[in-house]
Design a protein around this nucleic acid. Structure first.
Length: 466
RNA sequence: GGCGCGGUAGCCAAGUGGUAAGGCAGAGGUCUGCAAAACCUUUAUGCGCCGGUUCAACUCCGGCCCGCGCCUCCA
């Protein structure tokens, strides 16, 4: 079955292939670095990571651009309050974002681009929109006139010509012809950082930033553009209006949007204050893999309610997979081959792949893996899993972990070294052999206090960090 | 009000017009110096509610109720 994605533009499941058949050109709206991003933001970035890895597993090359918005109202306000340049203010948050992403094992986009490094191109785009009659100036700022773009609303499927009764549109705050017109270029106010431009000193609006950088690196029509659902309107709608007004060509072939991470039934957000940063959760002793698993195990188009119970469940689920892998790699197995078992593994891999092909159905993909783990464990217990079956099973785990990336534990900082632990385990095994169980138990206890759990088996003692 | 997503076991969560995946948690059992791990059994006569179509619907159609999101910066 072919790879299929739900396209927000058409509201349908569509077969996907890059326009050139080989390289997927995709753009992701990255963070605005005015503070730490929270794990709700990371839900979307984790989805993009699953997307990247799946595309590559299908043999495509990637040219993925992620922007960093490093000039914006909150950044300017906070930087000015602290007497810092916007560069100095954003630097730490940008680095923290990269660090947190790496901690969650998110691949870095092929190109990470900064808004402040593309101002001339944005100025040029605004000027070009002006010369083609899409803009107007008001109070020093330049606005995009929505009425000049007939397709406006096609992504969010809203008819903006009608009334907006009930919507909280505060018209008074703006000097715009139409409440939905949006700013392309913000005129400088006293003391604010600004760049020179034909339309007056100022700074770019958020929307033009993404259009310009996306098309500059990826061409006039992108294969994929992703973000959270809250960006559908107005951000992505505005990107379409600007971009297509500039080029006359479709801006994006496939729009993919991730649903929100919820907390106690509400969207996790800075403004509600109900958010956790990655650091908050790591401080509570959870491993990054558990967080990654939780964020990715629920398909991206479904709202995901974040709970610590959910994190506990994720931790246990990963542990089950790791235990199976340990057994697969270490247990002595009867010689030979069990053809049925190889076929079983092959079916699991096929199911895993086709689930991901189906709009990245991670929950279904995981089910294929866990079902195989149960069957393989059962076969091992019965002596029906043979030496030569290892290969196919390892292949499944490899396919799985190329996407989910949770099997390798994150190395603990500090604490006992592997060598020290091995020594204690060896000593305990000597004590066990001598039937000195008191000594053996005290070593078990000692290691447990260090966060090390022991599991005895016929093949020896396995240890793992809690 | 408009647009969108969703309501499946204690929790999380797949799914199909033909009789409910998977994970976590719980209970009982096997194994075990201890402890784990693993395995087995067990936990939804029912998939928000009401109608309709059908031999058959959780799955299709109609209506309704509820939750969430967007419509303002926002992943």
């Amino acid at each position: 079955m072919a790879l299929r994605f739900h396209n927000t533009l058409t509201q349908r499941l569509e077969e996907f292939a890059p326009a050139d058949g080989k390289t997927v050109r995709m753009y992701t709206c990255g963070p605005t670095v005015y503070s730490y991003v929270h794990i709700g933001n990371f839900r979307t970035f984790a989805f993009q990571d699953i997307l990247r890895r799946t595309l590559r597993a299908r043999g495509f090359l990637l040219d993925h651009v992620m922007n960093i918005t490093d000039v914006e109202d909150k950044i300017i306000r906070n930087a000015m309050e602290r007497g810092l340049s916007i560069q100095d203010y954003t630097k730490g948050y940008t680095e923290a974002f990269f660090q947190d992403s790496a901690t969650l094992r998110l691949e870095k986009a092929e190109r990470v681009v900064f808004a402040t490094e593309h101002i001339p191109e944005m100025v040029e785009a605004v000027a070009k929109l002006g010369s083609s009659g899409h803009t107007y100036e008001s109070d020093g700022s330049t606005y995009f006139r929505i009425a000049s773009f007939p397709g406006y609303g096609k992504l969010s499927h809203t008819n903006l010509g009608g009334n907006v009764a009930g919507a909280r549109v505060d018209v008074d705050e703006y000097e715009k012809d139409d409440a939905r017109d949006f700013v392309l270029w913000k005129g400088q106010k006293t003391g604010e950082p600004a760049w020179d431009a034909p339309m007056g000193a100022g700074r770019p609006g958020w929307h033009i930033e993404c259009s310009v950088m996306a098309m500059m690196y990826l061409g006039q029509t992108l294969d994929i553009h992703t973000g959270g659902v809250d960006l559908v309107f107005p951000h992505h709608e505005n990107e379409i209006a600007q971009s297509e007004s500039l080029t006359g060509k479709p801006f994006v072939r496939y729009w993919l949007h991730a649903e929100h991470l919820m907390v106690e039934g509400k969207k996790m957000s800075k403004s509600l204050g109900n958010f956790y940063t990655l650091r908050d959760i790591l401080d509570r002793g959870y491993a990054p893999e558990a967080i990654r698993f939780l964020l990715t195990a629920t398909p991206y188009r479904k709202q995901l309610n974040f709970t610590f119970d959910g994190l506990d469940a994720a931790r246990s689920a990963i542990e089950r997979l790791r235990s199976f892998r340990w057994r697969l790699l270490n247990e002595k197995l009867p010689a030979g081959d069990n053809i049925a078992m190889n076929e079983r593994a092959g079916k699991a891999i096929a199911d895993f792949d086709s689930s991901l092909d189906d709009d990245l159905n991670t929950a279904d993909a995981l089910a294929a893996v866990f079902e195989f783990v149960r069957d393989a464990n059962t076969a091992m217990d019965a002596g029906e899993f043979r030496e030569s079956n290892r290969h196919a099973a390892v292949e499944l785990l490899t396919s799985f972990d190329e996407i989910f990336k949770v099997l390798e534990p994150t190395a603990a900082e500090g604490g006992a070294s592997d060598a020290e632990i091995e020594e204690l385990v060896a000593e305990r095994n000597r004590a066990k052999k001598a039937k000195d169980f008191g000594r053996a138990d005290s070593i078990r206890k000692q290691l447990l206090d260090l966060g090390i759990v022991l599991e005895d088996s016929r093949e020896g003692t396995r240890w793992k960090r809690k």
